[in-house]
Design a protein around this nucleic acid. Structure first.
Lengths: 118, 118
DNA sequence: CTCATTACTTACATTTTAGTCAGTACTTAA
DNA sequence: TTAAGTACTGACTAAAATGTAAGTAATGAG
């Protein structure tokens, strides 16, 4: 939960007003958001498939991160009226438009992080 | 302070191993780091100049963020043996190499954040 | 009637990040 | 001797992010 009036939150919001970079980083900066976005770049995935692709995330956190990405307009959540349930997550156009940027960020990391698994 | 063995930290480190994107985002993701990096893209600045450019940050936090950027090899801290003290912060080559990426992130944000101050 | 399947939710605990406020060290200038 | 300037540091508090463990709902298959 977010106190609307904490200095922390006020600072965040103020920074967003004149720093597009900070705004973007806030959208993609959650612990598992890079993994989620990366996985969805190849096409939509069901909730269970996301879990398989990102095995270390707990369900609670996965759901939280998905909800935030949805709220921020980067992914859509499509629920099929079936039993057992089926829910598909997919990048929106805005989400897709991040692709070159995400690749750029990824490349920088691959080039500069300290050795191993490069 | 960071507990080296919390699930949180273990997850962070594990993710870094196969996700350059997450690694990069961790380096530049602090509350004031985008501002600091952005300011330093135009050349080196003294501590007091950084404070002027980023008026809302508290001194303690500013120092913390600078220390982290230094530890991660993105900036250098140059101390002159003078009184009153003079300390200059400057991007390293690695820091400079982020420029195109940072501009890309910034541009995406400027284009996609909800109206105003665009 | 019981079980399996899927996509969650809830209550709680822990860890990490950010912020506040006061104080320090050193030297020169008045 | 006192004050000014610069770049901090330390003790403390608050807020946000992340993680754990258990439980839920709907329905079709056996």
């Amino acid at each position: 939960m977010r106190k609307e009036s904490s200095t922390n939150t006020l600072n965040r919001n103020k920074i967003h007003l004149n720093c597009g970079m900070a705004y973007t980083l806030d959208l993609i900066g959650g612990r598992w958001k890079p993994n989620i976005l990366w996985a969805l770049l190849d096409g939509k995935l069901r909730y269970s498939e996301l879990k398989k692709v990102i095995p270390d995330v707990s369900e609670r956190i996965l759901v939280l991160q998905l909800r935030e990405l949805e709220k921020d307009g980067l992914i859509t959540r499509l629920v099929y009226a079936e039993v057992p349930p089926r829910v598909e997550y997919e990048l929106t156009n805005d989400g897709q438009s991040m692709k070159p940027m995400l690749e750029c960020i990824s490349d920088w990391g691959d080039k500069h992080r300290p050795e191993k698994t490069k």
